[in-house]
Design a protein around this nucleic acid. Structure first.
Length: 504
RNA sequence: GCCGCGUUGGUCAAGGGGUUAAGACGCCUCCCUUUCACGGAGGAAUCACGGGUUCGAAUCCCGUACGUGGUACCA
């Protein structure tokens, strides 16, 4: 049987680091086994609908290179892939469960539920559940007579269907990451399966759809572990136990203080979403890795090794290598704190690693958005090669490569002034003359003229190089000075030196 | 509160009865370089605690503490 996995986001907002990692592990597992990766939209909560969120998710996955094989936009044989479009099929499964005695109708109103919680609430039990004890005193088909239930149903009185958790049983299963996990059914509440509006809750939808879509392995965040017994029981009650997927609950990604939230991002200055997301209601922007200047290769890489390793010292993986080496059993069971410094290191490594051709377009874009037009392709390529070791994030190219195309507006003259004197000024005045005389404008000529003149003037060349750099670059950074001069050309070099001299 | 899951340097982590307890990020020192990086060589820093089991425990068991998640007609 071929491997089929799924990622099932609810389109309610930005796509979190942890979400992308869940997609990634699903994707890697599927591809490693030559299986399919399906994306299903879990939009059963109509009150939380957020326009644009679904399209946003697809954009993120595309940028990450994690394209689904089946999805609402990619199609596939098990559609529809949007749960809201599957609404009609859930009710009959829920009713089957009622018929079999594994679930029941509950007619309690919001107010009645609140009242029950209020009454049962104590210091020892701050959040009472609708469980096997509570259900005995509520308005549901367990307590009502058949006729009463029938009447309520016929009158279309709003109701939900709840699972009837066994009072005293143990449900256990083997998690691919954690091993044997077990739960006392009496401590789990009677989760709503079908809501009053006819939509299923996650609990019903996930098992019905996983069954219908022939999902073989179900990987999801650790936050689902406590409701796993409900899902296990549903598979059993529906008579599908034999086709139940294997489960793996992935560890959480934590922020500097506890669970990683988008607030952490704003607070500590790092992105937490794959791409920028603006909440349409509040207009609040949460930064994304894409806009921050991360390469998808690096983003995927850093996420992959946040909670997984192959047992070797290897840390840099391409997607193909990940597919080849990934093993869900080697995923850690403990949560991992996200470290932005290390994330940046990964990006730096990937910038160094990727060839110029691969980087060119992205660098062009980043320069363009800083108002720097690059038309000379050969020149751009040469420059990227020269400066990429110095760039951690894509926008770093603006500082590191920008001055090749545009003379610096402000010069860091404070770095020069303290040791500046008349001799040095004369040196540069004469150097300009020599520069103008160079016929073959290339590195060797520019450099030897500089050094010979310095020797003649009895000044150490080293003492002149920093001023020269500041004149051309604007600050104390960048590749070798004469290389810069060679690339920007004679005219521009002379111009920049003259301008700087006028300020000194 | 109750339930689940977890706990190796600041962070990511290897190791799963006998190791000088890998490696990476970050930090520090030095070399290279009269810029900034890259690269290279070093350094500081870890098995949450308490009991067992065992000749021997970071590794196995039990407690405790702490962290984290759940406890919704949200996913």
């Amino acid at each position: 049987m071929s491997v089929r996995v799924r990622f099932a986001p609810s389109p309610t907002g930005g796509l979190h680091l942890g979400g992308v990692r869940t997609v990634l592990y699903n994707y890697l597992f599927a591809k490693h086994h030559g299986g399919e990766f399906v994306l299903r939209i879990e939009d059963t909560d109509q009150t939380r609908f957020v326009p644009g969120a679904e399209e946003y998710i697809f954009n993120c996955l595309k940028w990450c290179g994690l394209e689904p094989d089946e999805s609402p936009v990619h199609g596939g044989p098990y559609g529809p892939y949007r749960q809201s479009e599957r609404k009609e099929m859930y009710r009959s499964y829920a009713e089957t469960l009622v018929t079999r005695g594994f679930a029941y109708y509950a007619f309690d109103t919001r107010e009645e539920l609140e009242k029950m919680r209020e009454e049962l609430k104590t210091d020892e039990n701050p959040s009472p559940q609708y469980d096997h004890r509570a259900r005995k005193n509520m308005r549901n088909s367990l307590n009502l007579t058949d006729d009463e239930v029938k009447e309520l149903l016929e009158k279309n009185i709003p109701h939900v269907i709840r699972i009837k958790m066994p009072e005293n049983d143990v449900v256990s299963f083997t998690d691919m990451i954690r091993g044997e996990v077990s739960f006392q059914t009496g401590l789990v509440d009677d989760k709503v399966l079908l809501k009053a509006d006819g939509m299923p809750t996650y609990h019903l939808a996930v098992v019905v759809d996983d069954y219908l879509m022939k999902i073989t392995h179900a990987f999801r965040g650790e936050e689902w572990l406590p409701s796993a017994p409900v899902h296990l029981l549903l598979w059993k009650y529906l008579g599908w136990e034999a086709s139940m997927p294997q489960w793996a609950h992935l560890p959480l990604i934590l922020g500097p203080s506890g669970k990683l939230s988008k607030r952490d991002g704003a607070k500590y200055g790092f992105p937490v979403f794959a791409m920028n997301w603006t909440d349409p209601k509040t207009n609040e922007l949460t930064e994304g890795f894409f806009e921050k200047g991360f390469l998808p290769e690096a983003f995927i890489n850093l996420l992959a090794v946040l909670g997984w390793n192959d047992g070797t010292e290897k840390e840099l993986y391409s997607m193909d290598e990940l597919i080849a080496d990934f093993d869900i059993k080697r995923v850690h069971s403990a949560g991992a704190k996200f470290d932005y410094e290390k994330a940046k290191w990964f990006n730096h490594e990937w910038i160094k690693k990727l060839n110029v051709e691969h980087l060119k377009l992205k660098v062009k874009e980043v320069l363009a958005s800083a108002g720097i037009e690059t038309t000379d392709e050969a020149k751009l390529e040469k420059i990227i090669e020269l400066v990429k070791d110095r760039c951690t994030l894509l926008p770093d190219f603006v500082q590191q490569a920008g001055f090749f195309f545009k003379a610096p507006v402000t010069l860091e003259l404070d770095a020069v002034k303290p040791k500046w004197n008349e001799e040095k000024k004369q040196f540069f005045t004469e150097y300009i003359k020599q520069l103008n005389g160079i016929g073959n404008w290339e590195l060797g000529e520019i450099e030897s003229a500089f050094k010979e003149l310095a020797t003649a003037k009895n000044i150490k060349p080293g003492e002149l190089q920093l001023p020269m750099r500041v004149m051309l670059v604007g600050g104390k950074f960048g590749p070798a000075v004469f290389q810069i001069a060679e690339i920007i050309g004679k005219e521009e070099t002379v111009k920049r030196v003259e301008y700087a001299l006028s300020l000194l």
